Amino acid sequence: MSNLHNRNDKIYIAGHNGMVGSAIWRTLLAKGYTNLIGASSSTLDLRNQVAVKEYLLQEQPDIIIDAAAKVGGILANNDYPYQFIMENMQIQNNLIDSAMQTGIEKFIFLGSSCIYPKLAPQPLKEEFLLTGDLEQTNEWYAIAKITGVKACQAIRKQFGKDYVSLMPTNLYGTYDNFDLNTSHVLPAMIRKFHIAKENNHESVTLWGTGTPMREFLFVDDMAAAVVFALENKLPDYLYNVGTGVDLTIKELAEIIQKITGHQGEIIWDTTKPDGTPRKLMDVTKMHNLGWKHQVDLEEGVRKTYNWFLENVNKIKELKM
């Protein structure tokens, strides 16, 4: 597979201030890409169709990477179903359709492993898409992302453009969201264990039974997968991106407890939902093309916790 792009290509990263977008930006800069553009949500509202099209006509990027989304954990998805389906569809549809209309040949769409059926066989293969019911707690977000995958597939099929979708497993890392109301399990645990340690190692209460299996990918590895998709013309429309390795939420809690140095008790609140029993990605397709993750979970958690400690006073919502 050959490198199709030169370092001067103008690359628009939608969502460049987020955890994933900022990691992609850093990775591209490190690889010598110099012509990167992004627009913060205060400058460009991606939910506004006219504004998105005007921005693309004005900036004329060669490539678009869509790392923009309205995201959240079980709680947020459950409480705001309309915003999760509608705003995500607006964001991606405006980007995909405007890219199509303005003649952009390469588009990388980032989705989520929650697009797969709740009870699909494990590990999750790309062909399991649309073969069963979704997990109810985040089906609104999942349905939005599925429509994005299908829109890119349709453009690929009908117009032959290089529009590809990457489905990451659970991502974590530097610039993560540590807000306990909206964050995902790993950053929420880091914050909980840290606060408990600061409060004389008081006990930490976690949701569910601790038995569900989850897979986690360090965000810099996700960024490397995006650059891989950018530099190569991938032969298919949909690729899983993950480690291919999972562990129980209880094991995750123990790793985070060890790295944060918390010595108190862990209490499992079994009245709270567990979510999907298992979500492991089959990453054979990406491996066969030559991409593989580099950062193991302990190293990644350590890097994330170090970043958290360095930024604990700056992170919004993080007044201890």
Rank of each mutant, 00 (worst) to 15 (best):
M1E: 01
M1Q: 09
H16T: 06
N17G: 09
G18I: 07
G18H: 14
A30C: 00
L36P: 09
G38V: 03
S40A: 12
V50W: 10
A51G: 10
I63V: 15
I63Q: 04
A69P: 00
K70A: 13
I74E: 08
D79E: 11
Y80C: 12
M86R: 13
I96W: 03
S98W: 04
S98Q: 02
G103C: 07
F107T: 06
F107G: 12
S112C: 09
S112M: 00
I115F: 00
L119Y: 13
L119A: 05
Q122H: 08
D133I: 00
N138V: 02
I146W: 08
T147W: 07
G148Y: 00
Q153V: 10
R156T: 06
K161E: 01
M167F: 07
L171I: 12
G173E: 10
F178L: 04
P187N: 11
R191E: 05
F193V: 02
E202Q: 15
E202G: 03
L206N: 03
D220K: 05
A224G: 10
A224L: 08
E231A: 02
D236H: 11
L238E: 01
N240C: 06
G244W: 05
V245Y: 15
V245F: 14
L247W: 08
K250V: 02
E251C: 09
Q257L: 02
E265K: 15
T271W: 08
K272L: 14
K279T: 14
L280N: 07
N288D: 10
E298M: 09
V301E: 00
K303E: 13
V312Y: 06
I315K: 13
K319W: 13
